[in-house]
Structure formats: C-alpha cells, structure tokens
C-alpha cells in the first residue's frame, strides 16, 4: 500500500502582500519601459515645432510618478515584514538560521542541479528565493537612491533632496545615471528568472504557486503542516 499524501489549503499570502506584489510588478514594468525609453528615446522625424509636443516629457513624468509609487510600496513591504504573517516575515529573507542554510543546499540540489528529488517542505518562500529577494530589496533601495538623487537636481520638493548625497558620493550625475541604468538590467533579468521559476514550481510541485499570488492559498502536503485547516481537497498515493 503506497503512502497517501493529503493536500490542504494554507493561506500564505495575505492581501497586503498580494497588492504589494502586483503593484510592484506593475511599477517595475512601467519603470523599465519608460526608463529604457529615457535612455534611448525613439527619434521621431517630424516637421512640427517643439511647442506642439511633449511626449518625452510625459514619458519622464510617468517614470517619476511610478518611482514614487514603487518606493513607497517598497517601504510598505518592509513594514509588512514585521506586521504580516510568518510567510511575510523579514526572517524569511536573511538566512541566519542553520535550518535555512540546509534548505539552501537542498533547493540547489533539487531545483537547480536536479540531482535529488526530495520534497522541499517550505510553504512560503524557500530559503534560496527568500535570500534572492533580500538582494532584490537592496537593488530596490539602490534604484530608489540613485533615481531620486538624479531627480533632486530638477525638483524643488524636499523629498528627492533626501537622496542628493549620492551624487557627490558617486562622483557626479554621469556615473549615478550609468549605474541606475545598469541596475535596470538587473530588474529585467530578475523578472525573466522569477516568472520562469513560478511556472517551474507550479509544474513540478503542484502546490498552486501561480494562483497563490492571486488567491493567497497554496496547497501543501499535510505532513509538512500538521495544524492546517481540515479542508482536504485532494489526495495522492505514493
């Protein structure tokens, strides 16, 4: 008689986490597209006078607007790292416990090198994902600082001035702009890998990885989570 695995629903991603995630995704897409356009604008051959058009100004305005949304959304997520549930906790993002490092090794063996088939027990972020997000948070911070630092010179508002110190630190607008641009590619590469891995996990583990960021629920093998609600939806024999 093979072992029976019972799957149960676990509420992993609370509404604030989901809203943060999709707002963040929207911001990143818009900021990358507008940011790339600002770096390499499409040259329009037109006979009109400059006073009749403002499209590049609008592209830049959208970039600045979503930069604010992105930054405050990020700050909110940091706050939710303390206020949210165990899966949203800041502890997931820094592997300072032995168990997390063991999981890092296991994830590398199972999901990256694929030399092992042992199931990964984590319900929220696995240790590798969590640690990767830690670095994305650093990249968020870097983009926010360099972006607002560049913006400070053209703004009279007090808020961007809080970041003006980065310009002398990096030796001038030119290098700040250069690195702000380089980090855009980090976001693009991250997004490609992130979307792929979500599909991968859903495909291999069947826990509802993709839909979890819409509904909040994941389907977890009961043996890893004995206290989950008695709401069995499926079982599989092994």
């Amino acid at each position: 008689m093979p072992k029976t695995t019972t799957l149960g629903r676990v509420y992993v991603w609370e509404i604030p986490v989901r809203v943060y995630h999709w707002l963040n995704a929207l911001c990143i897409v818009i900021l990358c597209v507008t940011g790339y356009l600002i770096g390499a604008p499409i040259a329009i051959q037109r006979a009109s006078e400059a006073s009749f058009a403002y499209w590049f100004g609008k592209v830049r305005f959208i970039h600045f607007l979503f930069a604010y949304v992105f930054f405050f959304n990020f700050l909110f997520r940091l706050y939710w790292g303390w206020a949210g549930n165990r899966y949203a906790s800041w502890r997931n993002f820094i592997p300072f416990r032995k168990r997390q490092w063991e999981e890092v090794k296991a994830v590398i063996a199972v999901d990256i090198l694929q030399v092992d088939d042992q199931p990964i027990e984590t319900i929220g972020h696995n240790a590798v994902a969590g640690f990767t997000y830690f670095f994305t948070f650093l990249a968020f911070l870097f983009q926010a600082i360099t972006g607002f630092g560049l913006y400070a010179a053209m703004s009279k508002s007090w808020f961007p001035q809080l970041f003006a110190w980065i310009v002398p630190l990096m030796g001038g607008d030119f290098s700040v702009r250069q690195w702000h641009h380089v980090f855009m590619w980090f976001f693009i590469l991250f997004s490609i890998v992130h979307v792929y891995l979500v599909f991968y996990h859903d495909y291999v583990e069947g826990r509802g990885e993709i839909s979890s960021m819409g509904s909040g629920w994941k389907f977890i093998e009961k043996e890893y989570h004995p206290h989950m609600k008695e709401k069995t939806v499926a079982a599989s024999k092994k």
Binding site: P41, A43, I44, A50, S51, A53, Y54, W55, F56, G57
Partner: peptide
C-alpha cells in the same frame, strides 16, 4: 523644448 517634445537629432 525639443527634448521634452521628443524631437532628437539622429
């Protein structure tokens, strides 16, 4: 103004 209007020399 040409910059804001997206009018660039190629």
């Amino acid at each position: 103004p040409n910059y804001d209007a997206g009018l660039f020399v190629n």
